[in-house]
Design a protein around this nucleic acid. Structure first.
Lengths: 189, 189
DNA sequence: CTTGCAATCGGAGCCGCCTCCGCTTATAGT
DNA sequence: ACTATAAGCGGAGGCGGCTCCGATTGCAAG
């Protein structure tokens, strides 16, 4: 007998899982961050209970919905490093990060939970982001553009803070100024 | 005839106003940030409608509840400047700000709304905070410890972002490291 | 094909948020 | 004191979040 690993979803469960994500992506895009989860469940053809079992919190659902696009953003870091100076690549990537978060409905609400996740579902996106920042940071340090000693994790958190505050100010320019400030704090003294 | 200025509350309304704030302070302290507003209204001996008319959002209520203590924090800036070097005073005040926000239940949730308020009720605390930071910043600039050209408003937002992210990480040390990073970005080049 | 059960489903139900509007009352002017 | 009226009151009701657990069903072994 094959031991059904707990990682394998039953076929019907997998189908529901996919349908929920599809419905969620559609709902967030069309109706904004405050879409009712009940509506998403209904559109996916499942009960609200099923949605909550699979995604215990709204943040979990948001993270899963955007996971692929988050991965794409992170994968863009090496390309930027190939084209630009490390310092410039870092700045451009950070600007891209802010734009990405601000443009995905629901993402700013989930961002704190994603960055804070120590493990579990949401940690996936967090790890991708930190690795991308680490790569950019390493290139900058090797290039002599930025100083050592600041953990990539701290830079990620700073960027997260900038994004959160910019969201509430709805003033995109503020984020750019704060990114400049952050980079100024990272240069070699 | 005296024109009843729209700023003057009717006597009974003033009483209710005070009772609501008293109940809110008690409830936030005792039951945390998620206290039900209905319970606050009940404890204050008013209907839920009265609470909402006076404080249209939860954030408004939080701001009003802590307004006096926020003012006290802001008033501490001149005293710090009298005792310490401007740069050190700035750092100590920022640490105090973070501790203050993190220790007041409900305050982190309301912080974005307070900082973002352009006018209206909540703007009061925001103005106090910005003025305090402006004073500290001016002293640092005159002292040659920090550079010019960064608006006090931006520094306030950066500090707000740091506080928000530290809250979700529940790692107080992170805030201190990010404050150092912020100050490093503000020094004369 | 049948069967047993672990995995999965799903919605009723409770709770808190917030709005809306008919009822009540403090107060200024006479 | 009396009264008109603006100011204030308050809770019913509609909505969404989330939980809980009895009903259902995919799946694999025989």
């Amino acid at each position: 007998m094959t031991i059904p690993t707990s990682r394998t979803l039953r076929a019907d469960a997998q189908l529901n899982h996919d349908r929920i994500l599809e419905a969620a992506a559609h709902a967030f895009a069309r109706h904004g961050a405050d879409t009712s989860l009940k509506a998403i469940a209904m559109n996916a053809g499942v009960g609200i209970g099923t949605l909550y079992r699979r995604f215990p919190t709204r943040d979990d659902l948001v993270e899963a919905t955007y996971r692929n696009e988050t991965a794409r953003l992170c994968e863009s870091a090496p390309a930027l490093l190939a084209e630009l100076s490390p310092h410039e690549a870092m700045r451009v990537w950070m600007e891209g990060f802010v734009d990405y978060i601000l443009n995905k409905n629901g993402m700013t609400d989930a961002l704190p939970a994603i960055l804070a996740s120590r493990d579990g579902l949401r940690a996936h996106s967090r790890d991708l982001l930190r690795d991308a920042i680490q790569a950019l940071l390493d290139a900058c340090i090797e290039d002599g553009a930025l100083r050592e000693g600041v953990p990539a994790n701290d830079v990620m958190m700073a960027l997260g803070g900038i994004t959160l505050i910019a969201e509430h100010e709805s003033e995109r320019e503020l984020a750019s100024r704060l990114i400049d400030l952050l980079l100024a704090g990272l240069v070699l003294t």
